[in-house]
Write a protein that binds this DNA or RNA. Structure first.
Length: 526
RNA sequence: GGCGGGGUAGCUCAGUGGUAGAGCAGAGGAAUCAUAAUCCUUGUGUCGCCGGUUCAAAUCCGGCCCUCGCUACCA
């Protein structure tokens, strides 16, 4: 069985999860579910990045021990994933003992390779910004003092003993990697950015700190704490059992098929991480996909603007499946996307409720009333019937699969929504309510074809709306073990005469409370 | 400043040489099985601006304007 390993970035555990975390987790989940249904042995990892100075400080501010603090934050992230029905196989935390061992092991490998050396890290440091600046970022004032051009804060020259990673030695190897694996960084425009960055030439990377304690100690130099990115990136192999490269999971799933991350951390994943892996003698991952950010009405969400759309609010307003669908549908994955309650409500109503939900409802209720609540017995299929079945069968799977390969989830949705539209058109043209009086046998054929289309649609939507999909499949009496994509298409068509349960609505229309359109409209129950 | 994207119907976008397209929103109609859902019809838009190449340009070339991203050690 082909394997497929997908990871999200591990979320930095200094604050509670927000919609961006949910977006990434759902994107990875949709992909993971698709691959499982499409016959892959999938391993899906998400988790939290719990070390570093910021966590240490946030814990202090909260009056808590760092470990207690991250325990609580990690629980929030895990809870968010569960509430969004994210089917991860492992939730990894960087404070786990196994992870420290893994980090120290990869460090030693890089050291053995000769890529780690001790030196001084020196630069212009702003205490207020907690950041180093390069000469180019600074403005010299008339009095000779230097300030950050952007933040206007004063900087001072700092020197700190630090271990360095010989990143400069990997410039050519990385460029060769991007050349040999054209899809290594996606979307393509991100790859261009990465390549042009690397082409400038890479400087060695400071990979340890001595100014705080909350992290993984450098082996043999305990006052040094590993730079958080060495720590964080290594989670992807810790999760598979590293440093035991003979571990069953490691052998089965590494190299990772896709690291799904936000566009802001592409450099770490597309440059540092493969360099670390090459240094440590570990095969590099196959792909890095940087998704965009969610905006609302063209603006960043922020508490001060009061325009924050939270995962919890989405679930309350729309339900889990609909929220997942709206997020995956509204934005082109890879680019920034604009979401708002207005846009999402419109989308959910137009596509899930009116188009797909109503197709299921109108078909199944006709079958319940006119076909003895059983899968109708079809007569000879006409060309229109065959055409629709074909469109809803293998052809749909092939088209959707092609979009998943590119992680173009919104396009994948368009593919099956167009099938649903075709089915609605077919009903209107065939008018089974008229055939009921003129040609009941033909009516049975039409309703059979529709039920079969609904079966295929129920199968294909599972990655996006897993719960609703199960309800639909239950309503057309599809056995629990016949719900993977191998069952899409005519070879596994519904058997006439199977008794069907009473139909009930799956995707209710969202009724906006006009008095408070941005807040708490309720979904009418079906 | 350098490099790279974009600028097409009210909105989101597709369209890389040959009479401008889709979805949503709006308007009209049909139908009535269904979640006031469905289906059909309906788009005269200076295709950012100026100039050039061509029989022919949204599509190629040059210039300009606007906008977005990247331009290393917080993550």
């Amino acid at each position: 069985m082909k394997s497929f390993y997908i990871s999200t970035a591990i979320s930095y555990a200094n604050a509670a999860p927000h919609i961006g975390h949910a977006y990434e987790a759902i994107g990875a989940d949709v992909m993971a579910r698709f691959k499982r249904l499409d016959g892959y042995d999938v391993y899906f990892v998400t988790g939290t990045d719990e070390h570093g100075q910021k966590v240490e400080k946030s814990a202090q501010l909260a009056g808590k021990k760092p470990q207690q603090f991250v325990d609580e934050v990690a629980a929030l992230f895990e809870g968010m994933c569960r509430s969004m029905n994210v089917s991860y196989d492992q939730f990894i935390r960087t404070t786990a003992e196994s992870h420290k061992k893994s980090c120290q092991a990869i460090w030693k490998k890089m050291e053995e390779k000769g890529d780690i050396y001790l030196n001084k890290y020196a630069g212009w440091y702003s205490t207020r910004d907690e950041a180093f600046y390069t000469e180019a970022d600074l403005t010299t004032l008339p009095n000779g003092k230097k300030i950050s051009t952007e933040t206007k804060t004063e900087v001072e020259w700092m020197e700190e003993e630090s271990y360095f990673f010989r990143l400069s030695a990997y410039t050519d190897k990385l460029l060769a990697l991007y050349e040999q694996q054209p899809d290594f960084v996606q979307p393509g425009f991100r790859k261009n950015e990465v390549v042009s960055f690397v082409k400038q030439g890479l400087r060695d990377l400071s990979v340890s700190r001595t100014t705080f304690d909350w992290g993984v100690p450098v082996p043999g130099a305990l006052k040094h704490i590993m730079y958080v990115w060495v720590d964080a990136l290594t989670n992807y192999i810790t999760a598979l059992g590293y440093p035991d490269t003979n571990a069953e999971k490691f052998k089965k799933y590494w190299p990772c098929d896709v690291h799904l991350i936000g566009k802001d951390i592409i450099r770490f994943h597309a440059i540092y991480w493969p360099a670390f892996l090459m240094s440590a003698g570990i095969p590099v991952q196959k792909r890095v996909f940087g998704h965009g950010f969610l905006l609302t009405e063209g603006e960043k969400m922020s508490k001060s603007l009061g325009n924050v759309i939270s995962p919890e609010n989405l679930i309350v307003k729309y339900g889990v499946d609909q929220s997942r669908y709206a997020l995956m549908r509204e934005a082109t994955f890879g680019q920034d996307g604009d979401i708002s309650y207005t846009l999402m409500t419109t989308r959910i109503n137009a596509e899930l409720a009116n188009n797909l939900g109503n197709l299921v409802q109108r078909t199944l209720s006709m079958i319940a009333k006119n076909c003895d609540a059983k899968v109708p017995t079809p007569g000879i299929l006409e060309d229109v019937d065959k055409a629709l079945l074909q469109k809803a069968g293998q052809a749909m799977l092939v088209a959707v699969r092609a979009e998943f390969e590119k992680m173009q989830f919104s396009k994948a949705i368009e593919e099956f929504i167009s099938v649903s539209h075709a089915a609605n058109l077919y009903i209107d043209e065939q008018a089974p309510w008229t055939l009921k009086k003129t040609d009941p046998a033909r009516m049975a054929t039409v309703l059979y074809v529709l039920a079969e289309v609904i079966r295929n649609l129920g199968l294909i939507i599972q990655p996006f709306t897993p719960v609703a999909a199960q309800k639909i499949l239950d309503q057309v009496a599809v056995a629990a073990n016949e719900r993977d994509f191998g069952f899409i298409g005519e070879a596994h068509a519904l058997k006439a005469g199977m008794p069907l349960p009473a139909p009930s609505g799956v995707f209710p229309r969202i009724i906006e409370d006009t008095a408070n359109s941005s807040g708490s409209a309720a979904a009418k129950t079906a």
